[in-house]
Amino acid sequence: MTASKVVRATLMQMFHHFRYGPDAWLLQFAGAADEHAFLMSRAIIDRLEKMPPDGLRDWTISYTTVLLEFEKNHCPAEAPTFLLDNDTFSQPLEREIKIVPVAYGGDDLLRVAEHCFMSMDQVVAHHSAAIYRVHALGFAPGFAYLGGLDARLHTPRLSTPRTMIPAGSVAIGGGQTAVYPLPTPGGWNLIGHTKQVMFDPTVSLSSAFFLTVGDRVRFIPI
């Protein structure tokens, strides 16, 4: 074992791998929603698609964790950490930046501004200045979890989630930002609205989603 492998093996053990009931593992592969986590998740997706573990029924990946769901009686007793061994990952190709036009001014723009000790205009300026990356799709179809939110805009989720949020709502939840693709319940702070359609169930799977993992995104105020 080379020195770098020993270091990585030690780091791996700091991450938490959780046996999530009898049929699933929740593996942690990074400590923060950063660039390293993004590259790891791309490599893990690549492995899951090319050589899925035996009996794997479904998988879901987020910023720093991946959930592996197995058929009944197929869940391995030991965490399948070989998926996290990143020897093979290569730098992904940079993609074009996708533009999401936003009418800023949602229900919680003031709440975010007050929490962050800045004006609403400053919130808009910071939010629309960054280039985000799609780290994960989840929660609802086409809901893209974006990485790269300016640390000055981090705002806690609502203590009680709203029972219905309109489709196209642009929101901040903790250190994350996203667009709600469909009317769903949700606990994030609403700061704007876009007319860009994020999910279309009437077309094939390959074109149903405006954003996919790995995309770069920028919000433009209108």
Partner: peptide
Amino acid sequence: EMISEPALLGSLQIT
């Protein structure tokens, strides 16, 4: 303040 993570059907979350 958690980093969003996958949820399994049947999970009991606390707001």
